[in-house]
Nucleic acid binder design. Structure first.
Length: 210
DNA sequence: GCGACAG
DNA sequence: ATCTTGTCGC
């Protein structure tokens, strides 16, 4: 797939994104997804499923593969999506929400990895990124404090303080969820700066490469 | 033309 | 993404 075709694919799928939360949505099992890279072109896609209440890991899956698409800002999903989908297929416990390592709507074409993964799977999803794709004012110090993440005049997400005294993370809607709920779900997954879903999938993936 | 640009 | 344990500070 060429970069041009990838962009066309994003524009084709983008209209399917929903920012509405199903009134009956109960998030009991949350999946965290992440991809780790080796020195060569090998990679490991990992997904863990946590009990949202206790934060216990109730399921996980890892797959190895090759990076067949280069890292291009704005086309990040095309590098990680194929392997992440393979890992998701291996789960036994079906997740109610996907927490992705990257942006959702906070993307130049409003279709980051979290949106892509959400639309393709049909599952609610949120993006949690460590660096912003847009401008923001620093939120207050308290855990839970947040400010708008703005790109091109639009509010595309939030800078969320998940822990006092540390840099905020950047939350944006992926699919089938609203921004308030997305932030609430992310916050309850945070013991340290990053959600437990992200931390555990990250360590599972890098362990697989060893 | 120059800088920006998730992981 | 990746290189990476102990250590400084509140």
């Amino acid at each position: 797939m060429t970069p041009e075709e990838a962009v066309a694919e994003q524009e084709r799928l983008r209209p399917s994104v929903s920012t509405v939360t199903d009134p009956g949505l109960v998030v009991r099992h949350v999946a965290g997804l992440d991809v780790s890279y080796a020195d060569d072109d090998r990679l490991a896609a990992a997904v863990v499923v946590l009990d949202a209440e206790t934060l216990r890991t109730v399921d996980s899956a890892v797959v190895t593969g090759k990076a067949d698409f280069p890292y291009v800002p704005g086309l990040f999903a095309f590098r990680e999506l194929p392997s992440l989908l393979r890992a998701l297929e291996r789960l036994t416990v079906p997740p109610d929400l996907l927490v992705c390592d990257g942006q959702g709507l906070a993307h130049p074409r409003r279709f980051g990895l979290a949106c892509h993964l959400g639309v393709v799977t049909g599952l609610p999803s949120v993006g949690v990124a460590k660096t912003p794709m847009g401008r923001f004012d620093m939120p207050a110090d308290a855990r839970g404090a947040h400010t708008d993440l703005v790109d091109d005049g639009e509010v595309v997400g939030r800078a969320l303080r998940t822990r006092e005294g540390v840099k905020p993370v950047f939350v944006s809607v992926g699919h089938r969820i609203d921004l308030d709920r997305a932030c609430a779900e992310v916050l309850r997954l945070c013991v340290t700066r990053l959600p437990e879903t992200t931390r555990r999938s990250d360590s599972l993936g890098r362990a697989q490469l060893r």
